[in-house]
Amino acid sequence: MGFVTTKKHANGLEYVDISTPHCKARIFLQGAQIDYFEPTGKKPLLWVSTADDYQPGIGIRGGVPVCWPWFGMSSTPGFPQHGFARTRIWTLDSVKMNEDAVEIKLSLPLTDNDREFWPHNTSVEMSFRLNETLSISITNINHADYDVSLTQALHSYFPIEDIHQLKATGFEGANYIEFAKGPFPQAQDHVDFTRETDRVYTELATTQALHTVDGVIEVSRENSKSAVLWNPWIDKSQRLSRFNDDDYLTMVCLEAANVLDDKVTLAPNESHTLTTHIRWK
C-alpha cells in the first residue's frame, strides 16, 4: 500500500511525503503546493529550479503554485502578484489511501491580515488525487449573501529537457493575449518556442500535450476555458528571482486557469471546482 507521512524540510517548511506502488510525491502545506510527482517507472512530471532554497514565506519556483484569489497583478497597488494563497500555511484536512490512489485535502484558514486582501466570506479547498495520474483541484465556495468574482490558476511547471525541441499541441481554434496585446487567433494546432512566450489562451480545448524529448505530457482541465502558456526565455530568466539564467531551457508552464472572460463568479452558496489532470501519455 505504501505510506503517507508528514515531514519537515531543512528550512522548516512542513510537507506531506507520499510513496505508493503508483507514485512518489511531496506536497507542502505552505501554498498547498506540490513540488514533486513521479509515477512509478517513469520520470518526474514536475520541474523546480535548483536556485530555489525553499524559504518560508516565499512561494516555491516550480511544482504547481496556487494563484488565488487573483491571477497576475491585482488591480489594487501593492497587493501581491498572483494573490496570497501560495505563501500561506494551509491546513491538512484529510488523507485517504486505497489500492487505486491517494487522496489528500487541504483548506486555507483566512486570517485578519488576509481579509485586507480578500474581505469576502468564501472558503477555498485544495484536493490531490495521486496514482499514475496527478489530479489537482481547487474549490471555491461563496458563503456571502452577494456575488463574488475571482480569477485563479494552477501554475504548473513541467520538465521538458530542451525548449528548442518542445512542441505544444492542442491549441487550434483558441484565441490568446500576449504582452497585453490581442486577442490573436491561434491558427495552428501547435506552438513552437523561439522567444519569450507568455500567452493567456481563451476558449481553449480541454486537453493539450507537451511533446518533449522524454515523451508526451498530457495536460487536461475541467471547468476551465482558459490556460496560460509561459517560458521566460533568455532576458527575463536573468531578472527572475530563484531562477537560474539557463533554466528556461528545461521548463515550460502550462497552467489550468479561470482568467479574463473565464473568471469565476459565484452566487450566494454556489461553489466552483477547477481541476487539472497531468500524466505521461
Rank of each mutant, 00 (worst) to 15 (best):
E178S: 14
R221V: 11
L249H: 11
E218I: 10
K167I: 15
D93T: 06
H155L: 04
T250Q: 12
I141Y: 11
T206A: 15
H9A: 09
H164F: 11
L108C: 05
E255N: 04
A32Q: 01
F179L: 14
D52T: 04
V191M: 10
V95D: 02
L266Q: 02
A10M: 07
P185A: 15
S94T: 14
L274V: 04
A205Y: 07
C23G: 04
T91V: 14
A101N: 11
T5Y: 09
I160C: 06
D235T: 14
H277P: 01
T40I: 11
G62M: 03
D145N: 13
G41Q: 07
T50I: 07
N98Y: 08
K263M: 13
D17F: 03
A267R: 12
K167M: 13
E222F: 10
H22P: 03
D214Y: 06
T139K: 13
R88Q: 10
V102T: 12
N11I: 04
T122K: 01
L46Y: 04
P56W: 08
L13Y: 00
Y36F: 15
K281D: 12
V48L: 08
T40M: 10
T122V: 14
N140Y: 11
H155W: 01
V48P: 01
N223P: 09
W280A: 09
E103W: 06
T6V: 13
V16N: 02
A257L: 07
T111W: 05
L106W: 00
Y201D: 01
W70G: 00
S149H: 06
K236G: 05
F179W: 14
F37R: 02
E270F: 11
K167D: 04
R221P: 00
T194I: 14
L106G: 00
P69I: 03
D245G: 02
T265A: 08
S75R: 11
Q188H: 13
A144M: 05
D245N: 13
T76G: 04
A209S: 13
I278W: 01
E14A: 10
I58A: 03
H211V: 15
E222L: 15
F84P: 00
C253S: 08
E255D: 05
G173L: 08
I278R: 00
W90S: 04
G63D: 03
L274C: 04
V48A: 06
S237Y: 06
Y15G: 07
H164L: 12
Q208A: 12
F184T: 11
D145H: 12
P44S: 13
T194A: 15
P185T: 15
A205L: 13
A174D: 08
K167S: 13
F128L: 10
F71V: 01
K281N: 15
K7H: 10
A168W: 00
S123F: 01
T273P: 02
I163S: 06
G173K: 08
T20N: 06
R61M: 11
G12I: 06
Y54L: 13
E14D: 15
Q165L: 14
Y15D: 05
N223C: 10
D145L: 13
G78I: 07
G170Y: 03
L150C: 08
D235Y: 07
C253I: 07
M126S: 12
L249N: 11
M251S: 05
R195F: 14
R242K: 14
